[in-house]
Amino acid sequence: MTERRPLAFTLGVLLWAASLLTAFGALTRYGNRPGAAGKPLRPSEPASLLGAYRREGRPLLVMVVHPRCPCTDASLDEMGELLARAQGACDAVLVRYQAAGWPAPPRSQTLAGRRVPVLSDPEGRLAVRLGAETSGHCLLIDAQGQVRFEGGITPSRGHRGSAPGQDAILAVLHGEGAGVAAAPVFGCSLANACLRPPPT
């Protein structure tokens, strides 16, 4: 039934498979390439900058997002998931990048049934002071005002699913571990590194 297969045909198939492998490799590499992770100018600065949103004795989970980044949906979904799993152990606030001319953000956003306040951040100036240069960057400020976690909570660009960042945050909230945990951030660049004030 099967005739002898021309060599060109087999070579063509191999070439096609190689092209496929290359393309998928590039896509996978892109998806797993974390964004730039900054550092707060001073460890205590996030707590002071977001003092209005902190309540005494309660940790505060902060997420910096770019509203038009496709990865933001996944990051927000994972934050809602995290808040649900934390069972009210922390407060939360969203810092929303705001470019000139873009419509003003809503005052709050509902995540996992909780209303989370939204703080508009023109040109990412606040974000850079918090040490966030990539959308989806999270900070966990403990009750004492210390940053205990910084980084992302998604497994890759735009992907949902459990990620080490989530586990680290939950561990801090459960009083486990010490020091500052970190995780890679996957999202669009906030392009605010140039706004970082020179160190004093």
Binding site: A23, Y30, H66, P70, Y97, G158, C188, S189, L190
Partner: peptide
């Protein structure tokens, strides 16, 4: 879902769109 990727206020075609067109075509 992901037409463009952003760098602050600037944007360019998202690699997902390129992947959908070219990798999907392949």
């Amino acid at each position: 879902w992901s037409p463009r990727t952003w760098e602050g206020a600037a944007s360019s075609v998202h690699p997902h769109l390129l992947a959908a067109v070219f990798l999907g075509g392949l």
